[in-house]
Computed example of a mutant assay.
Amino acid sequence: MSENVGFAGQIGPEHIAQVAEKGFKSVMNNRPDLEGGTEQPTSAQIEEAARAAGLDYVFLPVVAGQITEVDVRTFANRFNELPKPVLMFCRTGNRSNNLYQIA
């Protein structure tokens, strides 16, 4: 975690208000839809809440343990474009942290 990025486990639309209150300007979702089953909120649901709260939102799903060079390049380009700070999340936060560290 730094002044430009934070990492979290799975969030849902109901958490977006807290994300905004903590000062984040953008949210990046690195978890594929339905990876955790039907109980997992979809990217579209989270994006709707984020945009309603005035946050930028990026859906960049990455398969756990299979981060590719394309994933890293795409991440770097998107991350550099987003207003900071950015909250990145996946199932536990580790995948997002790994993606950030590799980039």
Rank of each mutant, 00 (worst) to 15 (best):
M1H: 10
S2R: 14
E3C: 08
V5A: 11
F7N: 01
F7T: 03
F7Q: 01
A8D: 05
G9F: 14
Q10W: 02
I11A: 01
E14Y: 15
E14P: 00
H15W: 13
A17Q: 14
A17G: 14
A17C: 12
Q18P: 02
V19R: 01
V19F: 02
A20R: 13
A20P: 03
G23Y: 13
G23S: 14
K25L: 15
S26C: 14
S26M: 13
V27S: 05
N29F: 06
N29D: 15
N30S: 08
N30L: 13
P32H: 09
D33N: 12
L34K: 14
T38N: 14
Q40V: 09
P41C: 03
P41N: 07
S43A: 10
A50G: 05
A50Q: 02
A52F: 04
D56N: 15
D56I: 01
Y57I: 04
Y57V: 03
L60F: 07
P61I: 06
T68S: 10
T74H: 06
A76C: 14
A76Y: 00
A76N: 10
N77P: 00
N77F: 13
N80Y: 02
L82V: 05
P85Y: 05
V86R: 01
M88W: 04
R91S: 06
T92I: 15
G93M: 10
N94S: 12
N97Q: 07
N98K: 15
L99Q: 02
Y100G: 00
Q101T: 12
Q101Y: 04
